[in-house]
Design a protein around this nucleic acid. Structure first.
Lengths: 234, 234
DNA sequence: TCCCCTTTTAACCTTACATTAACAAAAATG
DNA sequence: CATTTTTGTTAATGTAAGGTTAAAAGGGGA
């Protein structure tokens, strides 16, 4: 059985270290694309599909965090590992905020890196089975295209959705008729969970409800203290 | 409202460090059970449901790995974080083998630990989302969906249940036709057992009876001084 | 720079929930 | 049978969560 090699985007400005790491990963059966800085990293990211990104934090022109943010705008799912200078606590916290999956302090042990890579790719694989790759939804009489970010009612004129509107409606649609926990949306979309992000989410729920009013069979119900539920009656 | 606190089992033999860590976690809104060694840790694990285990690796009598293995035999899902001595690489690798979700080198930064805890619990939550079925009960002519918190009579309009109503009815349903001890509900749902919580529970029993009146075959009987019994006659 | 689009923050209001109180009824106790 | 405990039920209260709208704050082009 031909296992497809996993593809890693490695963004690391130190040429020596970068090359060594790349070779090491390739020896361990990963397909590695090595970019020398943030710009290049983003270009390569856009061109290809990767299973994992390993980003150095300290880089000229465009640091790892900025790059990660750009990557996240394009793709909310791809796992990201940061390579941070030793015990830069702020870096670690900032990393998690941007949506990192893990971090590694330099200098690090290569075997540990391998373990992490395996664990993370594995984790994403099971997590992603259901919810990735799905960009088109039927919601009552609506069609949602979450890749192009529009919502269309009965084949009429599509209305454009903002990124957050879109992500939120997509999450709801993924859980159609089922509970979509508040926390899930907050951590997946807002990447933070506090009073204000929570209120912000409520505002977006209101916006979505306004859009969805056109079809009285479709509604977003609240489950007090838990989250929301997109139901389609018939 | 009533956001249920996440429960952490902390197994750490150093009394000073353990206590400090416990307090710190509690300050951050976790419910923490602290065990002083592997044995005690396992006992406590068996007695309760936890959302996360934090295990020190170096402990007398029973080290963290052995404990983790035992825990894994009982429960394949609960996330485990190891606290390892600084850069003991073997420990890290061994930890992953045993099925750890993450590890932290001592000394570690407490904020980083918090981030990890949040990330890990969140991750598990999304993974575990789909194993419903254990949330659906048939009670006479009623359907109880305790995940979506509604009760439906003969396929009619579902009526929403409050968290406490829901939990209580679920507990009763789990013990259908059998005694559901007062104390059980109080410790599991109210997590406290005193005069007032007990009265509060009685209030909820009254509410449930009102809902269930629609089906005269279903009733909640009191067993004086013992608890309640959900019976379905036919 | 200004403008437009998006997102957050704020304010105010409504609803949902849990607890407590108060009083009635049943059951146990002796 | 009188008294104490336990349970049944309804209503009042306080607080937290959610609904809604508008204004402020960012942020990326033209």
């Amino acid at each position: 059985m031909e296992e497809q090699k996993k593809r890693i985007l490695l963004v690391e400005d130190d040429p020596n270290f970068g090359t060594v790491l790349k070779d090491y990963l390739m020896m361990n059966d990963y397909e590695v694309t090595h970019a020398k800085n943030g710009m290049e990293g983003f270009e390569k990211f856009k061109k290809d599909d990767f299973d994992l990104c390993i980003l150095d934090v300290m880089m000229p022109y465009k640091d790892g965090f900025t790059l990660a943010k750009e990557i996240r705008e394009k793709n909310t799912d791809v796992p990201i590992i940061f390579l941070t200078a030793k015990t830069m606590k702020e870096d670690v916290l900032k990393g998690y905020k941007v949506g990192a999956d893990d971090y590694l302090n330099k200098p690090f042990d290569s075997e540990v890196l391998l373990m992490k890579i395996k664990a993370i790719i594995q984790r994403k694989a099971t997590e992603t089975i259901s919810d990735s790759k799905q960009f088109e939804f039927k919601i009552g009489s609506f069609d949602l295209n979450s890749k192009l970010r529009f919502l269309r009612f009965k084949g009429g004129e599509p209305v454009k959705l903002s990124p957050k509107e879109n992500e939120l409606l997509r999450l709801l649609a993924l859980h159609e008729n089922d509970l979509m926990p508040r926390e899930l949306a907050l951590t997946k979309i807002w990447r933070d969970d506090n009073y204000f992000t929570s209120r912000s989410m409520d505002v977006y729920i209101a916006k979505l409800r306004k859009y969805l009013k056109l079809d009285e069979k479709v509604e977003i119900l609240n489950i007090h203290g838990e989250g929301f539920r997109l139901v389609i009656n018939n």
